[in-house]
């Protein structure tokens, strides 16, 4: 296996607060890599720097062998680095299918066409419908995003990321706020996506993380504490200390 995504000494500061502290992280091609850590550890901030939404104060991000530190989010997306948001972020006035088709189009070609309907773009539509079906929204394809339930909107987030046919998926708490059944469905979906895509998963649900991840990295106060297999993490004394009180780490 080779590294698909790499950070080198990535650092982000807000004033005196160091939110990403000298993080050097490697995600191998094809693996599902989870990032865990307490609230405010800097997980979302790290994802934002990987996706290109936030510029780091120092260090570098490499994707598929290229230094993409200076590339904006749209350029990274077109190279196959796609993300979903912790706080649902979809286009409310559009239907599920329109949301996903726009997401598909964005990585396939430009949007400088002024006459033919977006939904007539067969190639984009095909990718969109695949993403919608994979995310379990096929029955709701023509419903406006504003009319979806909370869990369904989270599913649409995933559908949009998948419609872009990504090489790498950055998923920021895809199960946040979902019902038990809905999260179970997402765990099953991620299980099926594993190996097809390289995935970086930020998630608080330890059962899900330990069931899915090939490797886990623990982030504390912006610092990368340790990376390892689920077993290594489960038995790591420092990790156990941090999660003290949360019963036993990753025991299912």
């Amino acid at each position: 296996m080779s590294a698909l995504l790499q950070t080198e000494n990535l650092t982000k500061r807000y004033g005196a607060l160091v939110v990403t502290d000298d993080v050097s992280l490697t995600v191998e091609e094809g693996e599902l890599h989870a990032i865990i850590g307490p609230n405010g550890a800097g997980k979302t901030t790290l994802i934002n720097q990987l996706s290109g939404e936030l510029a780091p104060n120092g260090g570098a991000v490499r994707f598929a062998g290229k230094n993409v530190t200076a590339a904006g989010i749209d350029r990274r997306a077109r190279q196959g680095l796609l993300r979903s948001y912790q706080i649902t972020s979809v286009f409310d006035e559009f239907t599920v299918r329109e949301n996903a088709t726009l997401a598909a189009l964005g990585t396939q070609r430009h949007a400088f066409s002024f006459w033919t309907s977006l939904l007539n773009d067969q190639k984009a539509l095909e990718a969109a419908d695949e993403g919608i079906a994979a995310a379990g929204l096929a029955a709701l394809a023509d419903v406006h995003a504003s009319d979806l339930g909370y869990g369904e909107r989270r599913q649409l987030e995933l559908a949009m990321a998948l419609a872009a046919r990504p090489r790498f998926l950055l998923l920021d708490e895809p199960m946040a706020g979902m019902s038990v059944q809905e999260s179970a469905a997402v765990v099953a979906l991620l299980q099926s996506l594993k190996r097809k895509y390289t995935i970086l998963l930020v998630e608080h649900d330890m059962n899900a993380v330990f069931a899915l991840a090939d490797r886990i990295s623990v982030l504390v106060y912006g610092k990368l504490l340790v990376s390892g297999t689920p077993d290594e993490i489960r038995n790591n004394a420092e990790v156990r200390a941090i999660y003290l009180g949360e019963e036993e780490v990753g025991h299912s």
Binding site: E53, D74, A77, S89, E93, L102
Partner: peptide, 16 residues
């Protein structure tokens, strides 16, 4: 129209 609803999101689907 997507940009008017959520400018940030447009960039993250790959459109400038």
């Amino acid at each position: 129209r997507a940009g008017r609803q959520n400018a940030r999101r447009v960039a993250s689907v790959g459109l400038s």
